[in-house]
Write a protein that binds this DNA or RNA. Structure first.
Length: 550
RNA sequence: GGGGCGUUAGCUCAGUCGGUUAGAGCAGCGGACUCAUAAUCCGUCGGUCGCGGGUUCAAGUCCCGCACGCCCUACCA
């Protein structure tokens, strides 16, 4: 169904600007970034979109509390919190859409008008419990049974006062009409919602029956106006979901839209339903293709519980990157957590993996290999010779090819952790190979010169393979390694290396001049580790969004 | 209430359609080595597979019950 087999359009949820950035947001972004970089390096027509969601009553309210207009408030948060977050973790997004941009608002209006014209939208009465204190209709999750004087009544979870049953005129989207088509979609395309556990929940939900969706509000005006009735603004979720098409020119640039759509959506499992039910129903109504895939990832657990700001377990990404660096942040969350499942975060695990895998495993491998080239071959890539070739070299070459193919296969399935694990087999194998071949011993015997060259060529070429395969995950460290290998001059920029050919052996030419390599992952001083560990127990979010009035 | 997921080594997790002595990484312990970031490599210790039944020649895996934890159960942006 994809418009072009090589097109790869990937999205993250857009950030609700009022939130404070924490590692959960960063986690989604990093996963998307790794996938995007991988596909880009594979030569696919890749487009990676992220952005911010800026409408809705909560934002209007915080802006007002801070004495500024909502747009100004959003501007401030985008610049002070969200765009810096992307820099902190080295995100390579191709576009950043804000729901307050004209291109988005125009696209939303166009989409709504089409649905209205085609009879998918009708005016109706929205009836719900309203809290006078909150000045808004309350979702079920914020309604509790009253106690004491209010026994038997429904009360607001925040104010503990009785709620009033109020009505307001709303426009409704006839979502119920799409129930059967959605069920057929899940049936025909088992990979549409992933992983399987998420798919099961979605199917069970839709089978219970779909109601129509209220898509407009009249109680406030911070939103996209309903095109045929300016007294209403668009319900914020309906507005937000449309960013995935308005960003690629829906209704304005058909060429761009045709080239990119449909998308692969990465979402947290909390917002799965919006993406796997409401969103495809909206697209079906508009006569557009449904997404290629909706992939729900899990929660980050801290101390066994879902990380949350209110429980003071929220962690700002900078706390990690300032000690360990952005590469380590990216590597850790991608490697340690099975993508699609919940995963435990701990400072201890982060520090242990940094030390064992990045510093001692990969970093040290690069150091020892380049040091020997420098020492025994004057800093040049040695030349392998067929005469000195043994089964040990063949095993490394085979592994490099196998691992490269398997990693690509796993990335295709969004099994990022498995892709990295596959690549790491080569890291471990090369460390073992060096120890077994004992090049330092070969170096003492002039008659073993060719053997020594062959061994070191094998290791060096292995590093080249690793640099290419790990570039999407740890772009900074691999860039340093690439430069030290001298590969830039011989093969071109690292980001240009075709990743699906990474396992092809013998690319790095003998004689290539190498450069000194700074330690890729320096040991973290124990004092810093202790400090990092201690900070896990403090409230730690310091952003402008702290002014959030809730 | 209904539905779903999970519980496997000290820790974090794999375990396919039921099929040999249940695996990995880390941590621990012992050894080898010196090119390297006191690193690497080898060996080793470690499990009542949450509990109780059942089906089967055979159960971590399938069925029933129970315990504990988490999630969903319509507008959380």
């Amino acid at each position: 169904m994809a418009s072009d087999p090589s097109s790869f359009f990937l999205t993250t949820p857009i950030f609700y600007v009022n939130d404070a950035p924490h590692i959960g947001h960063a986690y989604t972004e990093v996963a998307a970034d790794v996938l995007a970089r991988w596909h880009r390096q594979a030569g696919d027509d890749t487009w990676f979109l992220t952005g911010t969601d800026e409408h809705g009553q909560k934002i209007l309210r915080t802006a007002t509390a801070n004495g500024v207009a909502p747009k100004e408030w959003a501007d401030r948060l985008v610049e002070s919190a969200w765009k810096p977050l992307l820099d902190t973790i080295d995100i390579s997004n191709d576009d950043f859409i804000r729901t307050t941009e004209a291109r988005h608002e125009q696209g939303v209006a166009k989409f709504l008008q089409k649905l209205y014209d085609d009879g998918h939208v009708y005016a109706g009465e929205f009836e719900a419990l309203y809290c006078v204190g909150c000045e808004e209709f309350k979702p079920k999750s914020e309604i509790v049974d009253g106690e004491g004087a209010f026994e038997g009544q429904k009360v607001c979870a925040i104010h503990s006062k009785p709620l009033e049953l109020l009505q307001e005129k709303n426009y409704f989207f006839k979502m119920s009409a799409f129930q059967d088509r959605l069920l057929a979609l899940y049936e025909e395309r088992p990979g549409f919602v992933q992983p399987a556990s998420a798919r099961n929940e979605v199917i069970a939900f839709v089978q219970q029956g779909l109601e129509d969706l209220s898509i407009s509000r009249t109680s406030f005006d911070w939103g996209v106006p309903i095109p045929w009735d300016s007294s209403h603004v668009t319900y914020v979720w309906f507005d937000a979901l449309l960013n995935y098409v308005t960003a690629i020119g829906y209704g304005q640039d058909d060429a761009q839209f045709g080239r990119r759509w449909p998308a692969h959506h990465l979402v947290g499992k909390d917002i799965l339903r919006f993406h796997a039910v409401i969103w495809p129903a909206m697209l079906l109504a508009a006569g557009l293709e449904v997404p290629d895939r909706v992939f729900a990832h899990g929660w980050l657990l801290v101390g066994g519980e879902k990380m949350s700001k209110s429980k003071l377990t929220g962690i700002a990404p900078k706390e990690i990157t300032e000690t360990f660096g952005s590469d380590a942040f990216r590597y850790y969350f991608m490697r340690a957590i099975s993508f699609g499942h919940d995963g435990s975060f701990s400072w201890e695990d982060l520090a242990a993996r940094y030390q064992a895998e990045l510093a001692n495993g990969f970093g040290n491998l690069a150091s020892r290999a380049l040091a020997m080239n420098r020492k025994y071959f004057d800093g040049r890539v040695p030349e392998a010779s067929a005469i000195a070739d043994t089964e040990a070299e063949a095993a490394i070459r085979d592994l490099a090819a196998t691992v490269a193919a398997r990693a690509d296969e796993r990335v295709e399935e969004f099994a990022i952790h498995e892709a990295i694990a596959a690549v790491w087999e080569l890291v471990d194998a090369l460390n073992g190979y060096i120890t077994e071949q004992e090049p330092w011993r070969l170096a003492k015997d002039p008659e073993q010169r060719e053997r020594l060259a062959t061994v070191l060529y094998t290791v060096t070429e292995g590093l080249r393979v690793l640099a290419v395969l790990l570039a999407p995950v740890i772009p900074q460290a691999t860039a340093k390694l690439w430069a030290a290998l001298g590969a830039e001059a011989a093969l071109g920029a690292l980001a240009e290396q075709p990743i699906r050919e990474a396992g092809d052996w013998g690319r790095l030419p003998a004689g290539t001049e190498q450069r000194p390599l700074a330690v890729l992952f320096p040991r973290i001083e124990a004092a810093n580790e202790a400090e990092a560990a201690a900070s896990a127990e403090r409230p730690v979010l310091h952003t402008a969004a702290e002014a959030d009035s809730r």
